[in-house]
Every structure is written in structure tokens, then in C-alpha cells.
Amino acid sequence: MIRRQISVQITRGGNILIRRPCPPPCPEPSRPNLALPANACDSHCHIMGPAALFPYSAQRAYDPPEAPIEKLLALHRHLGISRGVIVQASCHGFDNSAMIDALKTYPDRLRGVALLPPDCTIEQIEELHAVGVRGVRFNFMSRIQKAPSLEAINGILERIAPFGWHAVLHFDPEQIPQLKNWIADLPLPHVIDHMGRLNGSDYGGKYFDEFCTMLQGKSTWMKISGAERGSETGPPFADMIPIARKFVEIAPDRTLWGIDWPHPVLTRPMPDDGHLVDLLGEMVPDETTRKAILVDNPARLYGF
């Protein structure tokens, strides 16, 4: 079985750079049946462009759709979402300007997760903290963005620790053997993206068990997002429900949720974001636990 759905062929050392085109998100998402609580937070979303104001990186792995902050907030209003955490998109590289502009414009409802180069300074971190950034993301998937060495990442973590930030980790399950000891020793909170990029058939398997073990650590968090990426059955992505429910059972106070709009580098048909909200109701049927995941947990981690 071919586990991962993305295959990007890129040559960065020479003059050729092949970028994957990125389709736009669902243009008319349905209104969800699930009513979200007040101050519900989308803890994983992106903004991209507009390119005329915020140019894309020349080294990007994909050509994104225009997904500016106004479109994101309109979607949030449609879905009943009050707060959001903007995760810096790799198509902008280390230029966090689009995210910074959004955080400055909507300081009460938005927080951010940045991408930082290994040589980032304390002064740069201070400036990001002042506008609402509360974490830094590390993408270990070379098909999207080359990750720094673990030594370089440790240097960044030492610099962000005094600010109370956390790390966001995006990696494939096959990378667990090389990362799990390092993750276990991380000295600050860390969030695993998109249910660890598990596939639906991974439930009960070795990779699933590894993530369950990771979640026993009291500094490890999990995002029950990305069902549309891992599902092998397609909409309504029901094969991902058992995985999410188990993660919530282990760490209900360290679980986050997000829609991952505008679903960058997704190679299958774009999901209906209203249906993703309703899927949350299936993944977390208990209303009290759902409120913790949507309101209390992100408020605690991001300082809303």
C-alpha cells in the first residue's frame, strides 16, 4: 500500500523547481448541523497571500490558491467559529508577514504559529510574541519543506522557551523511529499535527500504538484534524473516527481541533468544511469534552 497521498518532485539545487498546483477550497461549504460553543477555536488554519501584498517564496513546493484573511474569517463566521490559530504556510517560507498583518488586525480573535529559520534572534521572537505568536512549527516532510537538523531545532527551542511557546510537529508515521526519543525529551509543550498523518487503516497498528504511547507524556498534545487527508474511505471520513476518539480518550485536556483551511497540497477533492465541523461531533460526541477541545484547551495553550 502507498501510504502517503502526496508526491512532489522538486529540484532545489539547480535551476528547475517543479511546483504542485493547489486547487482552491470548497467554494460553497454547507452550514454545519453541529452548533459550536461560544469562543470555539479553529486551532489549525492558514492564510495565503494575496500575493500582491505578501509574495510567495521562490522555494515553495506548491502554488497556492489565494486565501487571504478576509476569506478565512468569512468561513469562520459561516461555521460558527469565533477564534483561530493561523499556522504559517510553507508557501510563504520564513516570511511571516501575512500572518503578522492578520494578528495585528484581529488581536482578540487570532493567534499564530510561525516558521523560524535556525538563525532567528531573540529580538525577532520578541516581535512575534508581541503580536500574538505562541508557537513555532517544524515540518519534517522534505517533499514540502526541508526541516532543519534536530540540533538546529533544539537551538530554536531554547530561544522560544522563555516566552512560553510550544512546538508544532508535522511528520509522517514512518519517521517515528528517528524522532520518538527526541520528542519524548522535548522540554516544552509540543503538538502533533493532523492525527500524526495516520491513515484510517492504521487504527490498532504499530504507528497508532506509538502515538498512543507518545500521548501518555504530559507535554504532548494532538490535533484531531486532517481526517480528509488520512481517510481511505472518503467522505464522510468515518474511518478516521476511531483514531480521533482514542486520542481524545487518552488526552482530552491536550487535544486541539482545526479545519486546515484552505487544505494546501491536498491531492483529492476538496472537503466541505461544514461537513468537517459535523465530523467533529462524531469524533467527540460528549459535549463537555468537545467544549474543552474547542474552547478551554486552545485558550490555555494560546492565551486567549
Results as ranks from 00 to 15, higher is better:
residue 81 I to A: 11
residue 82 S to T: 04
residue 59 Q to L: 14
residue 82 S to V: 00
residue 71 K to D: 15
residue 121 T to R: 12
residue 62 Y to K: 08
residue 103 L to K: 04
residue 63 D to V: 12
residue 90 S to W: 01
residue 111 R to A: 07
residue 81 I to H: 05
residue 118 P to E: 08
residue 84 G to I: 02
residue 60 R to C: 07
residue 116 L to I: 09
residue 78 H to K: 14
residue 109 R to T: 15
residue 86 I to Q: 13
residue 106 Y to G: 08
residue 108 D to G: 11
residue 107 P to D: 00
residue 79 L to M: 10
residue 59 Q to C: 10
residue 106 Y to A: 03
residue 70 E to D: 15
residue 95 D to G: 11
residue 110 L to S: 07
residue 98 A to M: 04
residue 61 A to Y: 02
residue 81 I to M: 13
residue 120 C to S: 15
residue 82 S to R: 11
residue 117 P to R: 13
residue 105 T to G: 07
residue 123 E to V: 09
residue 87 V to R: 03
residue 90 S to E: 07
residue 94 F to M: 10
residue 92 H to A: 11
residue 62 Y to C: 09
residue 87 V to I: 14
residue 76 H to M: 12
residue 75 L to S: 15
residue 61 A to F: 05
residue 117 P to N: 10
residue 107 P to S: 04
residue 62 Y to G: 09
residue 87 V to C: 03
residue 78 H to L: 14
residue 88 Q to C: 00
residue 124 Q to P: 02
residue 74 A to N: 07
residue 88 Q to M: 05
residue 112 G to L: 09
residue 106 Y to V: 07
residue 120 C to M: 10
residue 106 Y to R: 04
residue 87 V to N: 02
residue 64 P to N: 10
residue 60 R to L: 07
residue 116 L to Q: 10
residue 123 E to C: 08
residue 102 A to D: 00
residue 95 D to Q: 04
residue 73 L to R: 06
residue 61 A to M: 12
residue 73 L to Y: 01
residue 98 A to N: 07
residue 102 A to E: 03
residue 68 P to M: 06
residue 95 D to S: 11
residue 65 P to Q: 06
residue 88 Q to S: 15
residue 83 R to Y: 00
residue 107 P to H: 00
residue 106 Y to M: 04
residue 72 L to N: 05
residue 85 V to Y: 14
residue 87 V to H: 03
residue 85 V to M: 13
residue 71 K to Y: 05
residue 82 S to A: 15
residue 105 T to H: 06
residue 101 D to P: 03
residue 60 R to F: 01
residue 108 D to M: 11
residue 103 L to W: 00
residue 103 L to H: 05
residue 70 E to Y: 03
residue 103 L to M: 11
residue 100 I to A: 13
residue 59 Q to A: 15
residue 93 G to Q: 11
